[in-house]
Simulated scan of single mutants.
Amino acid sequence: MSVLDLARPDIRALAPYSSARMEAQGGTVLLNANESSRPANIPGGDGLNRYPDPQPRALVETLAELYGCDAGRVLVTRGSDEAIDLLVRAFCRAGQDAVAISPPTFGMYAVCARIQGAAVIESPLDASGALDVAKLTAGVTPAVKIVFVCTPNNPTGNLVGMDVLAYLAHELAGRALLVVDEAYAEFSGAASAVSLIDEHENVAVLRTLSKAWSLAGARVGALVAHSEVIGLLRRIIPPYPLPSPCVEAALGALSYEGRRVQRHHLNEILTERARMFAELPHVPGVREVLPSHANFLAVRFDDAAGTYRRLLAAGVVVRDITKYPGLGDALRITIGTGNENDRVLAVLRAGAGA
């Protein structure tokens, strides 16, 4: 059975839109896209009068090298969010199919499913924050076409082992696509699920340059999957997903010098994460700091709402995650610079002594 047998038949049969940039490659007089023939009269405007490549070859090949796969297995998207949306639209029929998630987890899986009219089946994490594999697989009904697993998980920071992912891929073969969200993978030091794709064609991996590569504003993400899945999604992705300046920013970040700077920044974050994990439990009012393999810490407080207000009044914005199941007393604190983290600790200590 092909993994495409899980996809919507109407999407498999869809004739994709052929954009102007796909036509007559190598031409020098471009009169086929109704673009302006003159560049915009703004700083850096050269080239912006032309549509960008649908899948910029240099960026696709660079990401393939970064993630250890063939370029034919990479689809560049506007952040991970677009890849999630494309997957749900390609594999889930409205009113018939479903996705499975393990809350508390990233909210866009459920949002994209509900926009598509697909059901959302929830198999919550266990009390320790670990993925309950038995509960998850037991909840995969014939309607489920996609199972989302976030590792490290947002907002708890826990990691799902490669052995668990391989087991899930095997159990879901012929039944559902396993989508592994590795948005925070660089902070974990763990091996990537991309290595599973050779053996399991029903595995797809989400990656992004928003976190460890400091490009959240550029909105550059990627899906790594079997080439047939990539080909299917290229049928429905908008013709020009990434603006040219965003492509150039990504290539700059992934250059030799960009990678050197990124390694330094990553080491700084890991050092600060360890420091905050060690210091926060000694702050009065902190009930527990959840172990994290990401660039944030989920922290339980005696008074989460009051702590959030005190931090906000001091100009420090953290994430209120009390709406998530099992996290009704928690806030998520992104690891900032050393000075920013000192500010968080100072405000918390001052509030505790008030």
Score class of each variant (00 low, 15 high):
A191M: 05
M22F: 05
R93H: 10
R273M: 07
R343T: 15
P52Y: 10
R260P: 02
E122D: 06
D181M: 07
L168Q: 12
A40S: 05
L206S: 02
S36F: 09
N202G: 06
E171M: 10
A278L: 07
R259L: 14
A185F: 00
A176S: 15
G326Y: 03
E201T: 06
R50Y: 12
P152A: 09
T77G: 07
G174L: 10
P56L: 09
R343W: 05
R310K: 12
S255N: 10
N295L: 06
A20I: 06
V29A: 15
E199G: 05
Y308Q: 10
F148H: 15
G117P: 08
S128F: 07
P104F: 03
A218F: 00
L327V: 13
D10V: 11
A58Q: 14
S227G: 06
D70K: 12
R175L: 05
T141N: 07
V347M: 03
K323Q: 08
A274M: 11
A305C: 07
A134F: 02
E199W: 06
K323Y: 10
F296R: 01
R259Q: 14
P239H: 11
D46P: 00
V247H: 05
D81F: 13
N267I: 03
V283N: 02
V316R: 14
T105P: 04
V318I: 05
Y256S: 09
V203A: 08
W213C: 04
G47P: 09
A298I: 03
P281N: 04
A24C: 03
G306D: 03
V29P: 02
S214D: 15
L312F: 13
Y109G: 00
L6D: 00
A118L: 08
L290M: 15
